[in-house]
Every structure is written in structure tokens, then in C-alpha cells.
């Protein structure tokens, strides 16, 4: 980021985008509940990052700077959607299901079940209040430590943990049917919370 900030190094910026595009896109998607909008918002984030590269202070962590910028864009988008009354749970009930069907993936019936579960989780996350949703997304999906989430959101670590426990309680209630099905499964899928090294 330092090369981008001081030298306007396009190649360095391309590397940076390549490194962070997926995590930022996933964050935006999970915050908004829409993969396409998530993709657009991730692009907006990198456009804003380049436009405001001079604002980056090397004393702070770049990841914190970028997560915060992406979240601000998500909040702006959520405000816009709410103002226009477009933020609804039924945004993705089209014929193709929430996600692409992979040709070499599981059988169609099990894929359908997985898609339904994924859609249920998406809806449940969208139903969570933003302060809880952001903590869940950053900790559970993006693998940030509670302390790092506190830095990004500028709140104490204890508050982050408290919100996480409340969010998990709410999700447990909202996703009770999915949990019940999962408990019947012999081998539940492992969690994907890879740590993002900065």
C-alpha cells in the first residue's frame, strides 16, 4: 500500500486488489445479502481505496483501513436500500437458486438442500441487526480475531464478544430447522474461517 500511496504504483495496486478482492467481496456480499451487489461494492471499495490512497496512514494496519472502508460502503448501500425500501429478504428467490450449480458438484437433490440451507442462513443474517451481523461476518466468515474486529469497528473487544454471543443466540433461534437437520448429518462440513494474514 505504501508504494501505491507514494508512487501511484499501478502494479502494486493490482497485486493488492488480487490479494484482497475475494475477502472484501465476501464481506460485502454477506453484509448486503446479494452476491452481485457484493461484487459491485467490492469494486467500489477498491475504487475508493485508490482515490483516497493519500489518506492511508502507514502507522495503522492496512487491513483495518480496508475493512473499515468496505464496511462504510456497505453501510451506505444498506441506508440507500432501506430508504428506497429495496432491502428485503426475498431478494434472491429466483429460479436459479442463490448460487451457481457446479457441473462437478454434488447430486442435484443434495445441491438443492444445500442451496436451501444457504438461503436460510442468508435470510437469517439479513434479519440480524447490523451491529451483530458485522461481528458475525468478520469473525465467523472472515476469520478476524475479536481484538481486530474491535479495532475495525472502534469498539472494545469485550463488546465484540458480547455482540457475537447475542448474534449466535439469535441465529440459533432463527436457524433452528437448519440446525436440526445438521444434527442428523453424520459429518458436518468444517467451518471455513481461514485467517487472513496481513
Amino acid at each position: 500500500m505504501w508504494r501505491v500511496r507514494t508512487d501511484d504504483d499501478a502494479e502494486a495496486f493490482a497485486q493488492l486488489v488480487g490479494r484482497w478482492q475475494k475477502p472484501i467481496q465476501n464481506l460485502c456480499t454477506r453484509m448486503i445479502g446479494d452476491p452481485h451487489r457484493g461484487e459491485d461494492l467490492a469494486q467500489d471499495t477498491f475504487a475508493r481505496l485508490f482515490a483516497r490512497r493519500k489518506n492511508y496512514e502507514p502507522t495503522g494496519k492496512f487491513s483495518t483501513f480496508l475493512w473499515r472502508m468496505a464496511l462504510n460502503i456497505c453501510y451506505d448501500e444498506l441506508r440507500k436500500l432501506k430508504r428506497r425500501g429495496e432491502f428485503s429478504l426475498d431478494e434472491h428467490d429466483d429460479d436459479s437458486g442463490p448460487f451457481d450449480l457446479e457441473a462437478d458438484g454434488p447430486a442435484p437433490d443434495s445441491q438443492l438442500v444445500e442451496d436451501e440451507r444457504a438461503e436460510a442462513v442468508r435470510r437469517a443474517l439479513v434479519e440480524l441487526a447490523e451491529p451483530y451481523r458485522v461481528v458475525v461476518v468478520l469473525r465467523h466468515y472472515e476469520g478476524l480475531k475479536f481484538r481486530e474486529i474491535g479495532d475495525v469497528l472502534d469498539i472494545p473487544e469485550g463488546t465484540v464478544k458480547s455482540r457475537m454471543s447475542e448474534a449466535l443466540s439469535q441465529l440459533s433461534r432463527l436457524l433452528n430447522p437448519v440446525i436440526s437437520e445438521d444434527s442428523d448429518q453424520p459429518n458436518p462440513r468444517p467451518r471455513s474461517n481461514e485467517r487472513l494474514l496481513i
Binding site: R117, V121, R122, L125, A167, L168, P188, R189, R191, S192
Partner: peptide, 13 residues
């Protein structure tokens, strides 16, 4: 249970 359920939404494409 909540954590396990969250894993049902894999990397969104």
C-alpha cells in the same frame, strides 16, 4: 448450533 448453521452459507459466488 448457530456456528454450525452459519457454515451452510459457503463462499458466496
Amino acid at each position: 448450533g448457530g456456528m454450525t448453521a452459519l457454515d451452510a452459507w459457503t463462499e458466496p459466488q
